[in-house]
Design a protein around this nucleic acid. Structure first.
Lengths: 354, 354
DNA sequence: CTGTTAGCGCATTCAG
DNA sequence: CTGAATGCGCTAACAG
């Protein structure tokens, strides 16, 4: 049992509790001999320092708080893996909360985390520009880092989604695509979606192409209530409608991989060949994509690395007793993974040649 | 900031700290008037009780520990969602650890959790029959519940994987399948895989069919090291070989959905039509399956519900100051989701008629 | 290098 | 119903 306290160890090792505490926290300040004896006692008794007491006394909880939208989107699961691994390696545990994209739950999570004496927080908020949770955090000395969000006044770890989109459009244009459509999750709950759709518009403009109306679809990892199930599986009605038109797009971009995968399904259901009839491209680079057929093209983010870097910045700040500055923000490189769902535009369906 | 202590509130409300503590923990024992005044002070100052101090003093951390193999398999992500949601609803936070199927990390996680004063633990171990982590836990008063594992001497929440497999085989036999093969993750790291493959053998036997050699494949969510990447995506060499044989199976069962999805890909890559040429069936019922085309058939487990029930049992036990008994184990119902990857056996490739 | 001692912030006896 | 006092288990001064 864990009911063996520091005092028991001290007695067993014939030393004072202070010495035991030292071999635990500052081993170098203890004599070789004593240290070994204490360590032996610790091992023998199976002593584990009480985390609560330690945290209360030292104001160091050895816990990092995490606030994520959802685990149902593998992006965040992958990121959390990076976070968890790195934190564990640094001797930290994590205390995660999931918000399902609800603003109140973002604030609530931050409040709970602060009360828990977490030494730092990594979070993904809906929109850093209008975030009650961030305001609350800002009044604090608690270091924090945003993941996936982007804002000049906050420390962020992400990729340049707008830039990535612009390059993607250029690439698609090179492949002969002219009718390129975008399907996005709700813009009001995600600055990522906003940036990406913005990049889409900008990219289309730069490429001299006419943007198509943005399709905003409900997204399974948004909101807590289930949607009406369809007997034949998930179905993106508006996308299906679009794809049935003679003037259908030759390329379809999902604002994230989950949406892209659903687009893929919708296209295949309709009987379109991917990528021969239509190219489908996603954003995120979730690992699961590699298992699919066709492997969806995607703008791949280093999701685990994003998590790792967040913890890295946080622990660095913690060590220096300061918060993470906005200048410490890092933009990680993304890569375009062509997968098997992206090809040159087909010439066939009434394409305006030239 | 959270640096407002109970004493500040007490002063502001003109009461003693004891009274403030009471309105927080036993409001009914405080006079209406006093309570309101104190509550007002709490709100005004934005007071949040210090979790560490509270935990230290009361031995109640309001935290549930969680030990899972990995987040890269959506099964556990979904389960964790159920855990997190239910825990939060009950006023509990979660402290998760991920083991990547390493036994030592299971023990280590349990040790850390015990030291953190968690009030209960839900875990998925490799094999409950030989689990150092469980042995350690058993010496404790800390209530725990196993998820997905199955063992008569431990409280477990899962589905009957063996039974499910037997029924699946029967169903496949009904559909005319005779050459049914199974692809499994490493058996030595998962009692689920063992049960499922055992069910396969039993089912084949009952159906009067000859079992085919079990294919054991490396699995992406096992082990921490990455495997050699293949330029054209993940490739199950042994499965591909099997599928190229003239006497190839007409149905392929993956011991979990991730494996099934990879089998799907492999089959499609080879040029087989699913489900016309071959049926592919998985196990787990991960939500993402519904987005794929073809939607993989699967034995669907209520993953979130499994998580919920674990927390339910745990909180119940915590309330009664006792551990969860093995008798409290629950076997949840599974359902066979035919998806779009399972069809009657084709007559064509050299099938032994009769 | 090691021991002694004083709280960290709160919940909980025990009086009143 | 409320207040004063005690200590949860540990770390951090400060002595020695």
């Amino acid at each position: 049992m864990a009911n063996v306290g520091i005092l028991d160890v001290a007695r067993a090792a014939q030393v004072s509790v202070a010495t035991v505490s030292r071999v635990l926290n500052e081993p170098e300040k203890v004599g070789e001999k004593t240290r070994l004896r204490v360590q032996a006692a610790i091992d023998a008794l199976g002593y584990e320092p009480n985390a609560s007491a330690r945290s209360l006394r030292s104001q160091r909880s050895r816990v990092i708080g995490v606030v994520l939208p959802t685990l149902l989107n593998p992006v965040f699961a992958e990121c959390l893996k990076g976070i968890a691994d790195t934190a564990a390696r640094g001797g930290y545990a994590i205390l995660p909360f999931f918000t399902d994209y609800h603003l109140e739950r973002e604030s609530q999570a931050v409040a709970l985390l602060l009360a828990s004496n977490v030494e730092g927080i990594v979070l993904v908020v809906s929109n850093p520009a209008h975030s009650p949770a961030l305001v609350r955090l800002g009044k604090t000395r608690c270091p924090y880092v945003l993941a996936y969000n982007q804002h000049p006044e906050h420390p962020c770890v992400t990729v340049n989604g707008e830039q990535a989109m612009i390059e993607l459009i250029r690439h698609l244009a090179t492949l002969g695509h002219r009718r390129i459509a975008m399907v996005s999750g709700h813009l009001h709950v995600s600055d990522r979606a906003q940036q990406r759709s913005h990049g889409y518009l900008k990219g289309m403009d730069k490429a001299g192409l006419a943007p198509m109306p943005l399709l905003e679809v409900p997204f399974m990892d948004q909101g807590e209530e289930e949607q009406t199930p369809h007997s034949d599986g998930v179905h993106l009605a508006s996308v299906a409608r679009l794809l049935r038109q003679p003037e259908r797009p030759t390329a379809l971009i999902g604002s994230n991989d989950l949406i892209a995968i659903r687009c893929l399904r919708t296209a295949q259901q309709i009987g379109l060949q991917v990528p021969n009839d239509i190219s489908v491209i996603g954003f995120d680079g979730i690992a699961l994509g590699a298992e699919l057929f066709p492997r969806p093209a995607t703008i791949a983010q280093p999701n685990e690395e994003i998590g790792r870097q967040c913890i890295g910045l946080l622990l660095e700040a913690v060590a220096q007793q300061k918060t993470v500055s906005a200048q410490a923000s890092v933009l990680l490189p993304y890569t375009f993974d062509r997968g098997e769902s992206c090809a040159p535009a087909p010439c066939s369906p009434r394409a305006h040649t030239g």
